[in-house]
Amino acid sequence: MALKGRDIISIRDLSREEIEEVLKVAHRMIPIAEGSKIDRRLDGIILALAFLEPSTRTRLSFETAAQRLGARCITIADPATSSVVKGETLSDTVRMLSGYADALVLRHPNEGAARLAAEMSDKPVINAGDGAGQHPTQTLLDLATIQEAHGTLSGLRVVLLGDLKYGRTVHSLAHALALFGAEMVLISPPSLKLPDEVTEHLDQLGARVREEEQLHRAVRDADVLYVTRIQKERFGDEAEYAKVAGSYRIDNSVLAGAKQRLIVMHPLPRLGEIAPEVDGSPHAAYFRQAFLGVPVRMALLSLVLKGKGA
């Protein structure tokens, strides 16, 4: 498997086999991520975390992943404390960091920043989210969550709910699910439907995708319910937002008719899309999903830096 030295910019850069390899290694990383097993395979490695847009969750999960495997991190946690505020270009920041570290993890407010960084850096670049663009490690951890719960990614029925237009996690996840032959059921307000270019792309991959209006009906025979945030700023007025947000809220009554094995996922943070009462139900998988971000990032770092996951 040739992930050693590779840039990980978009989930589209990875083949189905490469994704499977990352997930397999991630599964083996779980005891190390939990702290019950010690593994220092990245001892001596320095990882640069350039978070030129603040994101505590993703940054801490990368830091944890690196440190569990013995690597050290040099971190820009906030652009306000770096030379970016003096007007330094991303290209210069990246060239400097690639001289210091063995690999670079980049979070940036502009789309395409990670692809540019990869061109400028002679060390591997891992995209930790660029604007409304790509966030491949989120997709990998989403897939790891589904695989852990169901033992497979093929033949599942996955409901994608909420903001399917602007939610970048959904576009990347839909691409990956298409590679694995999952069936997708889409539920969203009319103004937040999946963009045409994403739908066309899924068609080209031969994906099975259909729209559904009734939440209860979609949930009834689903294996995965993937809930996304519906952001207030997408709506003209508050009342319209409140109406839409209310009709997509997941609580125990919505899940009453669901299959026993249905899992509810959410990229977090949630803003009322999932009622706290669901947290205690066997369907709730979103905190496990957040935890799996660590072993998935450990797997990726290990494969990119050492070329092996064993």
Binding site: S10, T89, L90, S91, H108, P109, N110, E111, G112, A113, R115, L116, E119, D130, G131, A132, G133, Q134
Partner: peptide
């Protein structure tokens, strides 16, 4: 919001997503 429009020393670059009619895709922000 594409990085190529933010003063970086880089030229815009597109690949051809479709030929008839022509649709281009930015290789940076897609």
């Amino acid at each position: 919001n594409c990085i190529t429009n933010r003063g970086e020393p880089v030229e815009s670059e597109f690949d051809v997503a479709r030929r008839r009619p022509v649709v281009l895709r930015c290789i940076y922000c897609e």
